[in-house]
Each structure stands twice: as structure tokens, then as C-alpha cells.
């Protein structure tokens, strides 16, 4: 898959999920959703792939997901059934601290 760059958008090959890259180290990594490599938002997804049962928790719209070493952070812009992973390791959900409303 192409290098992950901040602002890049990718969609799942196995579900409706879509993400945007919020921060990336620039290293070549393979980002998967449902266990299958994600594809660029405008590209066609390979047919026939399915969500791997170990990668099936799903992603929720508006949630941010990070790798354990925090070198990659993505934002889910469309919810999906597949979970995100890099090199086989599942991404973790990052919490937004609840702040007082100021604007």
C-alpha cells in the first residue's frame, strides 16, 4: 500500500470503514482493516475479501486509533466492522479528554 501521510484517506477492503491519517512517522507500514490491507479512498477494493474474526471489533466514527508506540494515529471518518492493525498488531482507541465547552 502507499506510504501513510498526514491527511491521507484510506478505505477498508472488507467493510464500510474509512480512515484519515492524523499523524504518521513516514515509515513503510501496512495498515489493515479487518485483517486485509486498506486501499486509497478513490481506488477499487479487491473483491471477495472478508473480515478476519480476530480483527472484527470494528471502528467507530470520530474515534481516533493509535499504535502502541504512537507513531501512527488515524481518525475513523466512516464506521466499519473491521478493526485496524499495523503489521498484525491491533490499534488502540485514543480517548479525547472531555473538556469544558469553550466555543
Amino acid at each position: 500500500m502507499p506510504t501513510l501521510k498526514t491527511g491521507g484517506r484510506f478505505k477498508s477492503a472488507v467493510c464500510a470503514g474509512e480512515i484519515m491519517v492524523v499523524a504518521a512517522s513516514g515509515d513503510d507500514v501496512e495498515l489493515t482493516c479487518g485483517g486485509v490491507a486498506m486501499v486509497e479512498a478513490g481506488a477499487d477494493a479487491p473483491a471477495g475479501a472478508e473480515v478476519h474474526p480476530d480483527h472484527a471489533v470494528g471502528i467507530a466514527m470520530g474515534k481516533r486509533y493509535i499504535t502502541a508506540d504512537e507513531t501512527l494515529e488515524v481518525l475513523c471518518v466512516k464506521a466499519g466492522d473491521g478493526s485496524l492493525a499495523v503489521n498484525g498488531d491491533l490499534l488502540l482507541q485514543k480517548d479525547t479528554k472531555q473538556l469544558p465547552k469553550t466555543d
Binding site: 466514527m61 470520530g62 481516533r64 479525547t96 473538556l99
Partner: peptide, 11 residues
């Protein structure tokens, strides 16, 4: 976008 993502929870 960074200001919004770190300070506002979607929906």
C-alpha cells in the same frame, strides 16, 4: 483540524 480533534469529541 488538530484543534478540533484534540478538544472536541465527535457527535
Amino acid at each position: 483540524v488538530s484543534y478540533i480533534l484534540t478538544s472536541v469529541e465527535f457527535a
